[in-house]
Structure formats: structure tokens, C-alpha cells
């Protein structure tokens, strides 16, 4: 078995995909770092201060002003109100939620990458794991060996899990290393608040507690890895089902992008919350942002994702075992 996994890993390394992924992450992180840098410079110029309390207060006043405008959708108003309460909470407890530093950058990077960017990178590896062998015909060479079929597929799946793990590691290390050049490497012990629970219009702060940023980041990485594994598993399933890698990519891309779009407009379609793609933003729950559909919680989203992932895995194995290869 370990030989098989090794073999599959070797194939992935040979394709040089991981290098491409590392390069993509590095370029994008550099881009975001620069954008972030410009943003803070701009803010400082506009307010004439680096005092974060003044900046936060200004943001609160801006939010209060936006809340006054009469033409605003209910969801948006709710969202702004939650943000407002959170920021006031930070201010009252003297916590700067965006203290500059590589860890802060890393945290926001993961939060923004979890629903599209990281799954996309995982797809790059997962999409052709089986389909390319099918279309190239090499699958026959694999299957004629005296190894059980499920073992072959399992070795591919384990190789995928290892690759996901590597991608997460690259994202974490690169975002920390590159942004640190500009923002400095400190700030792991910055206290952050989590445990905001949204109840209708209100923000329940009964469960709010403070955790250091390193713990916060570790939690986010764990959640991002979970999301990546689920997306990877579904891609893997399609890779088994379809011969064409392009089709696998197309289907998964459509699903992911529709998730991003749907999240903005499904607030009144309640059963949409059982779709995996609107449940990808797990880190929003940690942050205390309003979920796309009322009633969604971290536990709910994780359960939905787990069910989709398991179902995808079952389908993949079932089809692979039953299929005739000729």
C-alpha cells in the first residue's frame, strides 16, 4: 500500500503541478500584500493618523451613516448592524482587530481564500488524478497488476490528501513569509475575539471569548483544510466519473463560482443551505459575520460538507469498482 501511495505521489510531483501552485500562491500573496500596503497608506493619509482607535471610530461612524440610508436591503442592513456591534465591542475592549503584521495578513488571506482560491488550487491537483489515466489509457496498466482495485483508488485518494496538506502548508508559509517583508513578522499573540453568535438581528456576545492570534490562525487553517479536502473529494469523484479532465474542471469551477454568487442571493431560499458550495466560508462563523442564510451555524455547515464529502467518496469507489475498463 505504501508503495502505491509513493507511486502516486511521484506522479503528482513529476507533473510539476505543486510548483505551479506554489508560484501562483507566491504571486498572488505579493499582489495582495502590495494592495494591503497601499490601503493602509491611503487610510493614514486620509485620516492623518495611525491611531487605530481613531480609525476604528471613523469606521463605526461611517457604518452608522450608511445604516441611515433608507434604500438598503434587509440582509445588508443586518450585516452592517452586526459589523457595527462587533467593532464597538473591539473598541470598548481596547482591541485592535487589524493590527498590522504578517499574522494578521495571513489570517485575512485565509479568510478570503477559503471559498474559492484554495479549492481552486486543490482542483488543479485533483481534477486529473483518475481522468487523465482514463483518457491516456494508462489506467489499464494500473489495473492489470495484481492489486485490488479499491487499493489503487485509495492510494490515489491518499496522495490527494497529502497534496492538499502540502498546498495548505505552502499557502500558510508563503503568505507569512512574503507579507512579513512589508508588515513585519510579529503579532502572533494579539488577542482576538471569537464566539459571536448571530441571532436574528442581534449579536449574541454571551459566548464571546478572547484567543491569541496564533490559535485563531490555526483554527482557520484547520477549517480551510477541511473545506479543501471536501472540495478535493468531490473533484476526485468527478475525475472518476468523467474521462475528460476539462469537463471535471468545468463542473467544479461552475459549482464553486455559483456558490460565491448564490451566497449573495439565497437568503430567502432556505433549502439552498444544503448545497455544499454555500457552506464553504467556515471562517465567517469564527469571525462572527452573518451567514448567507439565517440559521446556518458552524456545526451545520461542517455537517453538510462532511455528508457531501462522504457521499462523493462512496460514489467514487462504487463507480471505480464496478466500471468495465477496456
Amino acid at each position: 500500500m505504501s508503495k502505491l501511495v509513493y507511486n502516486e505521489m511521484l506522479k503528482i510531483v513529476r507533473k510539476k503541478r505543486l510548483w505551479v501552485i506554489a508560484a501562483i500562491i507566491a504571486v498572488l500573496v505579493a499582489l495582495f500584500t502590495y494592495a494591503q500596503y497601499r490601503e493602509t497608506e491611503e487610510l493614514r493619509k486620509r485620516l492623518g493618523t495611525t491611531d487605530w482607535r481613531t480609525q476604528l471610530q471613523q469606521q463605526i461612524v461611517d457604518l452608522q451613516n450608511r445604516l441611515q440610508s433608507p434604500s438598503m436591503s434587509e440582509e445588508w442592513r443586518k450585516y452592517l448592524q452586526i459589523r457595527l456591534k462587533q467593532q464597538q465591542y473591539y473598541l470598548e475592549h481596547n482591541i485592535n482587530p487589524s493590527a498590522p503584521g504578517a499574522p494578521t495578513f495571513m489570517r485575512t488571506f485565509i479568510e478570503n481564500a477559503i471559498d474559492l482560491f484554495l479549492p481552486l488550487l486543490v482542483m488543479v491537483v485533483a481534477a486529473d488524478l483518475v481522468s487523465s489515466e482514463a483518457s491516456a489509457g494508462t489506467i489499464k496498466l494500473l489495473l492489470v497488476r495484481p492489486v485490488k482495485r479499491w487499493k489503487i483508488l485509495l492510494s490515489k485518494y491518499i496522495a490527494l490528501l497529502l497534496s492538499v496538506s502540502l498546498i495548505m502548508l505552502m499557502a500558510a508559509v508563503l503568505s507569512y513569509a512574503i507579507s512579513g517583508l512589508v508588515f513585519g513578522y510579529g503579532g502572533f499573540r494579539l488577542p482576538l475575539l471569537t464566539g459571536f453568535v448571530q441571532q436574528g438581528e442581534d449579536l449574541n456576545t454571551a459566548n464571546v471569548h478572547m484567543i491569541p492570534q496564533w490559535k485563531y490562525i490555526l483554527i482557520e487553517l484547520g477549517l480551510a483544510a477541511f473545506v479543501s479536502v471536501v472540495v478535493g473529494t468531490l473533484t476526485f469523484m468527478f475525475s472518476v466519473l468523467l474521462r475528460s479532465t476539462a469537463a471535471v474542471m468545468g463542473i467544479m469551477l461552475a459549482a464553486l463560482i455559483s456558490g460565491a454568487i448564490l451566497s449573495n442571493m439565497v437568503s430567502s431560499w432556505h433549502s439552498a443551505k444544503y448545497l455544499f458550495m454555500v457552506n464553504l466560508r467556515l471562517t465567517d462563523y469564527i469571525k462572527g459575520a452573518a451567514p448567507p442564510i439565517e440559521g446556518m451555524t458552524l456545526g451545520f455547515s461542517m455537517a453538510v460538507l462532511a455528508v457531501w464529502g462522504l457521499a462523493g467518496l462512496l460514489v467514487a469507489f462504487f463507480v471505480f469498482m464496478q466500471r468495465d475498463v477496456y
Binding site: T205, V208, H209, I219, G222, Y285, I286, L298
Partner: peptide
């Protein structure tokens, strides 16, 4: 990452509220 995930579950579902 598994540890992070476990931490997430532990922190979000079983944390005792200690308001700062």
C-alpha cells in the same frame, strides 16, 4: 491541520465564555 480542526471544534462548541 487536523489539530487546528480539533481546536476549532473545541473552541467553538465547548468553549466556556470568558468575556475579556
Amino acid at each position: 491541520w487536523l489539530g487546528g480542526l480539533a481546536l476549532a471544534v473545541q473552541d467553538q462548541f465547548f468553549a466556556t465564555a470568558k468575556p475579556p
